[in-house]
């Protein structure tokens, strides 16, 4: 498949801070690509450069064969954006929301009503067309936001954390909608905090941390980074954590990562028999176990391995470029 977005040696500096550091990656036409990283890792800065909201310090972005630096208007027409915060204008009705964006994307006047009709149907909002969007539920607002982003029939759909804050049911239907749009031929670029989401939806993912692309590939390729062994998780009563860790180290040679009352470790040897031995040992040592389990590596584990932090690291914000940006984003 041809590359629809090609990013070459992209760098963005804010003063001394390098928000995006020499990133190169390509997104293929028709795929769902997920950009992952802790808050402030550089994914929003990268997306903002793709959306022409920020100018790169150096590097080149080509979208659908067009050099972004010289074709702002044309490229903007090719991309639809849905962000977690900009979903809909609360004071406007669903129809007025769609009309506004039809005008802003210069949809030909004779097609506006037809497209709005289709969009309302697509979003299952026909009977709410003339109700204020502010009265809609979270799920309805996202649906409207999604068809709003599609109003100019863009080739590329950029979804910035499309399901943040949605309940499980709405998230699942959102995923189905995104997959549906992708089946119709749209390339989807999404950022997410939910690794499960990336795992479910994406054809390929890229992981960004400290402005650098640190992993790129299909979810299963990326998961392999965490190693072939299974992941052991033990939760114990808090005052037993240190004792458990030293026991695992001395008896089984396992270096566990301690996080609060939780111990995580990668199992290398024959994991099933080891697991039985470990649970026996815990029992013998009279360590109070809250839960114990073993699972195949998930993207979460990859993440912890690659970045040293979990995905939802609150203080991660400080590391990134966002803090220094004064502007309209």
């Amino acid at each position: 498949m041809a590359d629809i977005i090609r990013i070459e040696n992209l760098t963005k500096r804010f003063g001394d801070l390098v928000a995006v550091n020499n990133v190169s990656l390509s997104i293929r036409e028709g795929e769902i690509f997920g950009l992952l990283g802790p808050n402030g890792a550089g994914k929003t800065t990268t997306i903002n450069m793709l959306l022409t909201l920020l100018l790169p310090t150096s590097g080149k972005i080509t979208i659908d064969g067009l050099d972004l630096a010289r074709n702002h208007e044309k490229v903007k027409q090719l991309m639809g954006l849905m962000t977690q915060e900009t979903v809909v204008e609360a004071e406007l009705t669903a129809r007025q929301n769609l009309e506004l964006f039809s005008s802003l994307y210069h949809v030909p006047a004779n097609q506006v009503q037809k497209r709005i009709g289709e969009a309302l149907e697509e979003a299952d909002l026909v009977q709410f067309a003339d109700k204020k969007a502010g009265t809609f539920s979270g799920g309805m607002q996202r649906r409207l936001g999604l068809v709003k982003a599609m109003i100019q029939e863009p080739k590329i759909l950029v979804l910035d954390e499309p399901t943040t804050g949605l309940d499980v049911q709405n998230r699942t239907t959102m995923w189905a909608r995104i997959k549906g749009l992708n089946k119709k031929g749209n390339t989807v670029l999404l950022t997410t905090q939910y690794l499960e989401e990336a795992d479910q939806l994406c054809d390929r993912i890229g992981v960004i941390d400290h402005g650098k692309l640190i992993a790129l590939g299909t979810p299963s390729e990326v998961k392999r980074i965490a190693g072939s062994g299974k992941i052991l998780e033990i939760v114990v009563k808090n005052n037993d954590v240190a004792r458990t860790a030293s026991m695992l180290k001395s008896k089984f040679g396992i270096a566990a990562v301690v996080n609060g009352d939780k111990l995580t470790a990668v199992m290398t040897k024959n994991s099933e028999s080891e697991f039985t031995k470990i649970s026996g040992a815990l029992d013998k040592e009279k360590i109070e176990v809250v839960s114990i389990g073993m699972h195949l590596p998930t993207l979460d584990d990859v993440f912890i391995k690659l970045t040293g932090t979990g995905m939802r690291d609150e203080t991660g914000e400080m590391k990134g470029g966002r803090m220094n940006i004064r502007g309209w984003r």
């Binding site: 909201l53 900009t86 802003l104 994307y105 210069h106 309209w328």
Partner: peptide, 15 residues
């Protein structure tokens, strides 16, 4: 509007 992200949505549009 800026804090709600609307301005961003307009800036992304080819206007």
């Amino acid at each position: 509007d800026r804090n709600a992200g609307f301005i961003k949505a307009y800036l992304v549009a080819p206007i």
